[in-house]
Design a protein around this nucleic acid. Structure first.
Lengths: 172, 172
DNA sequence: CCGTATTGTTTCGTACGCGAAACATATTCC
DNA sequence: GGAATATGTTTCGCGTACGAAACAATACGG
């Protein structure tokens, strides 16, 4: 644990978080806007392009891929089924499993939207040199990995507070 | 525009996006978890700490700060008012504006949650050297700025498609 | 002054997004 | 083989989150 953190580092950390927030927010906005042209929502477009890429998958797998809970995806698929973009097909081997499949209409729309939702970010990232891109990736994954271990430890502990208390009052 | 983009760059870009998504998702999860200890939701905790920091502000300003629409914040404030965490106070100079103010209860809870929601990320970012942190910030802001200009141009155009069409059919 | 545009907030409708509980089917262990 | 368990999905309740429209008050042009 670092002993004394200079406060200008804290400022930079804030700015990093700000930048992350901005980029994420913007990525959603862009996806959404792109989707609107096809009368879709952001998540629906994501699902459509995903299915186009990998073929039929189960609902759980879909949830994993788009990092959402099953209960969330159930709703998304409900609405997409209502719009005749996908169909549910009960698996024959394991009857608990539901496979999600593109309909012809769904496949056609996926084809029509040739742009990857994240295209803008590709463009933006192109403003970095290959070396910079690699550096960025390295730094981000390093941070991500670190977050992951902290979170893991946290979840495992589950107790009173494994957090490194930030010198604030904690009594009551 | 770079002439030929090697496909391993594309892969790295994907990974960068993946990392961004992960970090953002995780930050929300952590905030939420922290908030739960005080019977709050993530956004509510954010608002509480923000008000604690800057004092009374108008609803619009609040919306700006947390990057949400007014209509979203209206709902959040509704629920917080219901829980007696904040009060609305109509401005006397301009009777259109509503100032949001912490109640004693709200202020107390804000004080009790000494941990900044983003603390975990501070910890994670501490695993980078000061130089690396600065590099990360530099790269992220560079990308963010680039995204911003692309988006701006996009919005300004508003027309058929200022996007660099990716060789897909665009009719119909 | 009066009408019109502008600005700040709320309302409404819809779509995520989550966690907990319900439910159905599979698996395991005795 | 039947109870206990685990796994895949849905249901439910709640809280964001957004855009468009409604509404209120202010500013602006004539």
């Amino acid at each position: 644990m670092p002993a004394a953190i200079p406060s200008d580092i804290k400022l930079e950390v804030d700015q990093v978080l700000e930048a992350l927030l901005y980029l994420y927010t913007e990525s959603r906005r862009v996806t959404k806007e792109l989707a609107r042209k096809a009368e879709l929502t952001g998540p629906q477009l994501t699902v459509l392009k995903l299915l186009e890429g990998v073929g039929d998958i189960s609902l759980s797998e879909l949830s994993d891929r788009i990092r959402a809970q099953n209960s969330t995806v159930t709703g998304i698929i409900d609405r997409m089924e209502r719009e005749d973009l996908v169909v549910r097909a009960r698996s024959t081997e394991d009857r608990r499993v539901v496979h999600i499949r593109l309909t012809d209409k769904g496949a056609r729309i996926a084809r029509e939207i040739a742009v990857e939702p994240m295209e803008i970010f590709r463009v933006a990232l192109d403003s970095l040199s290959p070396g910079e891109t690699r550096d960025l990736l390295k730094l981000l994954t390093k941070v991500a990995r670190r977050v992951q271990t902290v979170v893991k430890r946290d979840v495992a502990g589950e107790g009173p507070s494994p957090h490194p208390r930030p010198a604030g009052r904690s009594k009551e």
